[in-house]
Design a protein around this nucleic acid. Structure first.
Length: 564
RNA sequence: UGACCGAUGGUGUAACGGUAGCACUACAGUUUUUGGAGCUGUCUGUCCAGGUUCGAAUCCUGGUCGGUCAACCA
């Protein structure tokens, strides 16, 4: 690699550590140069942005190196898993834009093969049936500093072990009565090598194998062997499995697997500021109704982000930008927000919408008159078409866009001041009307007909406002989302504090919005820019009865708000 | 206190013994019929102590700090 190449970003040649490993493997001719990855979710919850990173990584690596990626459900614990989750996960992976190698696999596809493997290990004297209770076993395991003690059942005969395993499978024993264990080393400094459990008895109905099995394999026993059976070359998982790698290797060795052998690599999972990422905690938020389901737009789930208005491209871009390494990290949500703004700025149609209205009356505009003004749908798109916006005497503008007694840097409307109404005319504020509480109810203005948008004018204004003609306005329910937590690391509070103590009570505000008629073209999921406000996505619940519903994806950057 | 892993600006991530770069954030300027977007620029960094070397973020030694591991979860 030439040093100079590294400096030119347009032909970026720097690789992350996984790409380096893969390139070395290809060079060395390992696995005949094949690259085959897999994404192995457990169907016990919905996918979140951390999974999205893993998906982009696994599929991205295969794409880059001309390889394949399997989608495999790690369904080894029937008590926690269901087809509801399977379906949702499939939809999310598809939505993110990735194509897995057909068919979809399940660890349960390998239950039969795994059973044969287990018999093989028993015959080699490398596995045994243990009658200890879970509690006894836990005590006997020792501590990281102290060796464990060997099970009294460790040296049963091959015949007895085979017979017992067969009877475990047939359901002759109660749950918890016996397990199959690998015979490794109770004194190992690595806890995972202290005769780990391979099979446990569960009289549970499995979503795919039904009642066929009464024993189910543990993760470590199922995973590496599934990788092997699928011809996986690079089995990529998160850091907490680092200590499992010797066990992963031990099983492959014990099964005498030498050719086409998968290798496990670990990377640091994604952490995002102002949210939580563990499935357990997300489940808690759902079950305890802090949010309205897994796809609540405040959730960091893929389905939540989708409903919030995030696009697949924005999530892929984000996954690219966060990078891949082995150190713990905390990504600032502002990076995620940057990615969706970048996408929507280029692609979202613009529309004017007033969310906190105050009435503005143009006194010198004829009553009953209206005109259609052309407006560009997306100024960032050179091929953008025009939309027509109705203008009339009575408008709504944003309450924040008017101040009776403004500071010097206020570029918006104030008594005696002039602003442009976007795509329309320059107006001057002449007067305000207030109610008995002192609240402004009407702003009276004069418009200048020769300043119509597109006309030459010498009149200069500092501010441009968005507006909606009251008579032509479409009403919509607008859901204003904010971050779900008030602190950047809700999981790292003081002693005795729970992540739920930091839930933001104002994470959702629902308001009525007034939009220009063009909004009627919206379809579910479509993202718009409400000019000067932010990006908003049509909610999937919008229907003729509820009317239009919009979710705020993210606000526009606002240097005015910041400067105050 | 055992094993494994890690440590580069505020946050991420490059640099593979030879000028510490890129992105986000923040700030400033420019521009603007979105206080948006764009463009330009600025600030801030190699955990510590030794050693090897002409030269160390990079190699070695020793510390410090952080993460993971004692489920019949994954």
């Amino acid at each position: 690699m030439d040093k100079a190449e590294n400096k030119t970003p347009e032909n970026k040649t720097s690789l992350n550590f996984l790409e380096q490993i893969i390139e070395n493997d290809i060079k060395a001719g390992k696995n005949q140069g094949r690259v085959h990855t897999r994404f192995p979710p457990e169907p016990n919850g919905y996918l979140h942005i951390g999974h999205a990173k893993s998906i982009c990584l696994n599929f991205g690596l295969a794409l880059k190196y001309n390889g394949k990626t399997n989608l495999r459900f790690d369904d080894t614990n029937p008590t926690k898993e269901s087809t509801e989750y399977v379906d949702a996960i499939i939809e999310d992976v598809k939505w993110l834009g990735f194509q897995w190698e057909e068919p979809i696999w399940y660890a349960s596809d390998y239950f039969g093969k795994l059973y044969e493997f287990a018999e093989y290990l028993i015959k080699k004297g490398k596995a045994f049936v243990c009658d200890m209770t879970a509690e006894e076993m836990s005590k006997g395991r020792g501590t990281p500093q102290m060796p464990g003690v060997e099970s009294p059942w460790r040296n049963r005969s091959v015949e007895e072990n085979l017979d017992l395993l067969d009877r475990m499978r047939k359901g002759e024993f109660k749950e918890g009565e016996r397990v199959l264990r690998a015979k490794i080393d109770m004194a190992s400094p690595n806890m995972w090598m202290r005769d780990p459990v391979m099979y446990r008895i569960m009289h549970a109905h499995h979503h795919r194998t039904g009642d066929k099995w009464c024993i189910y394999p543990m993760y470590d026993w199922a995973h590496g062997q599934s990788d092997y059976l699928e011809g996986i070359t690079h089995s990529i998982c998160t850091l907490e499995f680092e200590n499992h790698r010797p066990l992963y290797e031990w099983f492959l060795d014990a099964l005498d697997i030498k050719e086409s052998r998968p290798r496990q690599y670990e990377f640091a999972r994604l952490n995002l500021s102002y949210t939580v990422m563990s499935k357990r905690k997300l489940l808690q938020l759902v079950e305890e109704k802090y949010v309205n389901g897994w796809d609540d737009p405040r959730m960091p789930t893929v389905s939540g982000l989708r409903r919030r208005g995030y696009t697949p491209a924005s999530i892929r871009a984000f996954s690219e930008k966060v990078g891949v390494a082995k150190r713990e990290n905390l990504i600032d949500v502002s990076l995620l927000e940057f990615c969706i703004r970048e996408d929507l700025n280029k692609n979202a149609p613009r529309v004017m919408s007033v969310l906190n209205p105050v009435k503005l009356i143009i006194d010198n505009y004829p009553e009953g008159q209206a005109e259609e003004l052309p407006a560009i749908i997306n100024p960032e798109d050179p091929d953008s078409e025009k939309r027509m916006v109705p203008f009339s005497r009575e408008l709504y503008i944003e309450r924040d866009d008017f101040m009776e007694d403004p500071p010097k840097k206020f570029f918006r409307l104030a008594p005696g001041k002039e602003v442009r109404l976007k795509y329309a005319y320059i107006i001057r504020c002449d007067d305000v009307v207030k109610d008995e509480k002192g609240e402004i109810t009407e702003i009276h203005c004069t418009y200048f007909p020769d300043t119509k948008s597109g006309m030459e004018t010498t009149r200069k204004v500092k501010g441009t406002l968005h507006w909606v003609s009251i008579a032509h306005a479409e009403e919509a329910e607008v859901r204003l989302y904010d971050r779900l937590f008030t602190v950047s690391e809700p999981e790292n509070g003081e002693e005795g504090q729970d992540f739920k103590d930091f839930i933001n009570p104002d994470s959702l505000k629902v308001v009525k919005g007034y939009c220009e008629p063009f909004i009627k073209t919206a379809f579910a999921g479509q993202g718009f820019q409400f000019e000067r406000l932010g990006y908003f996505a049509a909610d999937k619940d919008s229907n003729p009865e509820t009317g239009l519903i919009f979710n705020r994806t993210v606000t526009l950057r606002d240097s005015w708000a910041k400067s105050r």
